Simulated assay, not measured.
Amino acid sequence: MAIKKQYLKSKPVCKVTFSVPADEAKAVAVVGDFNKWNPKGSGLKKLKNGTFKGTFELPVENSYEFRYLIDGSYTNDEEADRYQWNEYAGTENAVLEV
């Protein structure tokens, strides 16, 4: 898994690209604070090499809890900026700082 951040000079947003190698998966989405944990519209596109990839524009100077939803199962990104306990979910979420 990988996270790439590209800060734009023209506006206060960061283009964040999520890459998830998941050859066997049928669907991968990124859900988190930035999309109200809704997988609709946050699906990643499957590339020929089996990696799922997608880019989102997120407002800067924020931190966002997020997780990947891979075929209905949640997982964290090992390259997250940090992890934070989420009482509602009863687990740790990955955190992205932009």
Rank of each mutant, 00 (worst) to 15 (best):
E61M: 14
W85R: 07
F52C: 09
L58V: 04
D77S: 15
Y74R: 14
G54C: 04
N35F: 02
L44I: 03
G41N: 02
G90S: 04
T17R: 10
K53L: 06
K53S: 14
V60A: 12
C14Q: 05
A80L: 01
Q84R: 13
N62Y: 10
L44H: 05
Q84T: 12
E57I: 08
Y64P: 10
S73H: 13
Y88H: 11
T51W: 08
I70K: 14
K5Y: 01
K48A: 15
D23G: 08
K40D: 12
P39Q: 07
Y74H: 13
S73F: 12
P39T: 07
I70T: 14
A25Y: 03
S42R: 03
G43R: 00
N76L: 15
Y7E: 02
F66I: 04
N76M: 15
L69A: 08
Y88K: 14
D33H: 00
G90L: 02
N35Q: 02
K4Y: 05
A29T: 10
A29N: 12
K46G: 02
Y64A: 06
N49G: 13
V30Q: 06
V28Y: 01
Y88D: 12
T55G: 01
N86M: 07
Y68E: 05
K53M: 11
I3R: 02
W85Q: 00
N76D: 14
E87F: 10
G90P: 01
K26P: 00
D33I: 04
F52V: 11
N86L: 10
P59G: 10
S10A: 00
Y88N: 13
R67V: 14
D33G: 01
W37E: 05
K46T: 03
A25H: 04
Y83Q: 08
T51E: 15
E79C: 11
K4P: 00
G90F: 01
L47I: 00
D33C: 00
G54N: 01
E61H: 15
Y68C: 06
L58C: 00
R67K: 12
L69D: 14
P39N: 06
P39M: 08
Y68A: 15
E24T: 05
K48H: 10
S63I: 06
A22C: 04
V31S: 04
S19D: 07
G50F: 09
K48D: 13
C14S: 11
P21T: 08
P12N: 10
D33L: 02
K9V: 07
L69K: 14
Y68L: 13
E24C: 03
D81T: 10
Y83D: 06
S19K: 12
V31Y: 09
L69H: 09
K46L: 02
I70P: 06
Y7Q: 05
D81I: 11
D23H: 04
V31T: 14
S42F: 07
